[in-house]
């Protein structure tokens, strides 16, 4: 396998991992599968288009504003929608996320039509190739995605492992009743999980749009990242990372050595294969599965 192929795998894995993190965060804390995640990612990208239009001379401000909006978006989705579903069947919540996805898709077409937008072009940024090794090139935006994915995962790991609120998020996922009894406001923890989830999704959407633009079908990428989260076991961030690598490697190997037509189905083939052997995913916990 050539070094360029490995670089390609790393980039694609970083994209899938960055998107998957949000699936895992919400699922791990509230056991809700957020099927509007891809749409939320797309909205994050569109928000960058909007802020870029407003502050084309100040990219840093535009990026910061879009990132903060990504966080706020999750808090709002929780406060307006998902909050009212705590205590209801998980299935009801999942169905509501499906409806939310449809709503967001419709809304985004009303606002941004079906046109392709390039926030990088608005900033006047080129996306030149970078030689990372002799014969290995990736775009600046791809490099940024890889770097950001590493930063996001490291930050999430440190947060969940070593901060009180991180420990509380893990606790709420394990036993929401006991968490409440230990003084933890579940709504606050859930809102935080949603905020972090859409924040990371927005970062993914923003960087993807800087790399290759955004249009109304970007949400589908959320669907393609979903197998990565599931392969790793929906409740494990480390699993999502490994799952993203496996899925990306399989997809790129299929394109390179078998048939590019397979690239769409390979993630789901990998998923079926893994779930047949370990229904709870590679790093998920068996106990979590019983609850769904």
């Amino acid at each position: 396998m050539s070094p360029q192929l490995i670089a390609n795998i790393v980039v694609l894995a970083a994209i899938y991992a960055l998107v998957s993190a949000g699936y895992v965060l919400v699922y791990r804390v509230s056991h809700v599968l957020n099927l509007a995640h891809g749409e939320l990612m797309m909205i994050g990208a569109y928000i960058l288009v909007a802020t870029a239009g407003l502050f084309s001379g100040n990219p840093i401000l535009a990026l910061l504003l879009a990132a903060v909006s990504g966080l706020v978006m999750g808090l709002v989705v929780y406060a307006v929608l998902m909050r009212w579903l705590t205590g209801e069947a998980v299935l009801a919540a999942v169905l509501v996320t499906i409806a939310l996805g449809i709503l967001l898709r419709g809304l985004s077409i009303l606002i941004w039509t079906t046109q392709q937008f390039y926030p990088a072009a608005i900033f006047g940024w080129r996306n030149p190739p970078v030689h990372i090794l002799p014969g290995v090139q990736i775009s600046v935006a791809s490099l940024a995605i890889v770097a950001l994915t590493i930063i996001v995962y490291a930050a999430l790991f440190l947060f969940l492992q070593f901060t009180a609120w991180g420990v509380r998020m893990r606790a709420a996922g394990q036993n929401p009743l006991l968490a409440e009894q230990r003084g933890i406001r579940l709504h606050a923890v859930y809102a935080l999980a949603w905020g972090l989830s859409t924040f990371t999704a927005s970062l993914a959407g923003m960087l993807l749009s800087l790399d290759s633009g955004v249009e109304s079908t970007m949400a589908t990428i959320g669907l393609k990242a979903f197998p990565a989260a599931l392969v790793g076991g929906l409740d494990s961030l480390f699993g999502a990372l490994v799952g993203a690598l496996i899925v990306a490697a399989a997809e790129i190997a299929a394109i390179q050595f078998v048939n590019p037509l397979l690239s769409d189905v390979v993630p789901f083939l990998v998923l079926l294969l893994v779930l047949a052997v370990r229904p709870w995913g590679l790093f998920g916990s068996r106990e979590q599965l019983d609850r769904v």
Binding site: Q4, N8, L12, I138, S212, P260, L261, S263
Partner: peptide, 20 residues
């Protein structure tokens, strides 16, 4: 000869093959 599915997250793998 490459057939690129719609909504591809990264076109580089296809480009790598063409260049290769």
């Amino acid at each position: 000869k490459e057939f690129v599915p719609p909504a591809t997250a990264d076109y580089t793998p296809f480009a790598t093959k063409i260049k290769g």
